[in-house]
Write a protein that binds this DNA or RNA. Structure first.
Lengths: 210, 210
DNA sequence: CGTCAATACTGAAGAATGCAGTAAAAGATA
DNA sequence: TATCTTTTACTGCATTCTTCAGTATTGACG
């Protein structure tokens, strides 16, 4: 049985359609540019192009780099064809994996300090990525875009990321303020404050500026 | 070698700390309440409690339901201990898997209709969850919270979700308006509009109300 | 009385991650 | 110039997680 094409296969195929890359470059490029849309391990990113070659959607050729060789992958015509077909298929639903939220939900097993620390770590992670994107946009302005013909796409995606990160950072500040008012993490029940929040949310109102 | 405890193990352990559950209830409960913090497959959620029993952190007993038995899992003292320890460990960074963004980034392989469809599907998924949370908050108000002593935690998490969903929906509307102005998906380059957006983003400004 | 949804799982294949291991090239430092 | 570190450039293996198919009972509804 031949392996099937996953969204990760199409991601690699789409990168190969821009230009040929070595396996190493592919892992670096995919991790840098797709980290916040399609986060995949280096290991997988090394395996995908091999699979594409096996299926006839890419070709490899060894290139000499001193005393060592590296694999350069290129897309084939058939690869271009399946890539075009992909754009018409159903998009998978998004998946948000946020361990910090698991810790918040079960915060009653630990201290207030434990929740604050989880929030701090979450904030540090988000803030790091936030700054990366801002810096990347700066580099587009003064150094230019690595693929200028695709600038409109990556800038629209960057807009999404900035909005998300700002929202998360605003929520973290809000959550910290809320938890500051808790005497403990446990058994606060449906107190007046929580009821007010619930009432707002049930009306699809944002309670952040409350 | 004994299996290690993953964040999913702690999630199940935390649920077991609330009350004993059957395997089936555990899968349903975990998927309903943790879907947007820690999305895991039904299959895994059936395996986790078995692993916990093997490690001594939970116990099973068969219960009769007519002609069929079901497994009821309970947490052990040792399980409670490791759960408390977990709150002090490092939180994993978040992971956002959004295929719709992959399709946006590589939209130049398809038509404008293809991108619009990907955005529609993304919106439908988010909107579904958005409405679920609003409905859940409504049910807390008139039916009460299933674990009232934990209301403050789940409402704070709900706040996070509502903020995220609203942000995503706002961005989708913005993206649709942007793409409406594109003559095609390809080769728009660093045009004046894209440059304006880039400039705003490089200053960490939101361009959504532009 | 039949049938359809919900309950209640398990096995096996395949996808993806984490980690360790290997080794050369390039750059930094003394 | 010698050595030390970082970056380049991967692969194999164990483990984790998902997908899918399969099995079979219970309960609701017409």
């Amino acid at each position: 049985m031949s392996p099937r094409l996953t969204p990760s296969s199409y991601a690699v195929l789409a990168l190969l359609d821009l230009k040929p890359w070595t396996g190493y470059e592919l892992t670096q490029q995919a991790q840098r540019s797709l980290r916040y849309a399609w986060p995949k391990s280096e290991r997988l990113l090394y395996s995908e192009p091999k699979k594409l070659v096996e299926l006839g959607y890419a070709t490899v050729h060894q290139e000499d780099r001193g005393n060592r060789t590296r694999n350069v992958y290129s897309i084939t015509e058939e690869g271009g064809r399946v890539l075009k077909e992909w754009t018409t298929t159903r998009t998978e639903p998004p998946r948000f994996e946020i361990e910090a939220m698991l810790r918040l939900l079960f915060a009653d097993h630990g201290s207030r300090e434990d929740v604050f620390r989880a929030l701090d770590e979450f904030e540090a992670d988000i803030d790091g990525h936030h700054q990366d994107i801002v810096a990347l946009m700066g580099s587009y302005l003064d150094g230019g875009h690595p693929f200028p013909q695709r600038a409109h796409l990556s800038v629209l995606f960057a807009t999404f990321q900035i909005e998300m990160f700002k929202t998360i950072e605003r929520w973290i500040a809000f959550a910290r303020a809320e938890i500051d008012d808790w005497p403990t993490t446990q058994d606060l029940g449906m107190n007046p404050r929580t009821e007010t929040l619930t009432r707002r949310l049930a009306q699809d109102d944002s309670p952040l500026n409350l």
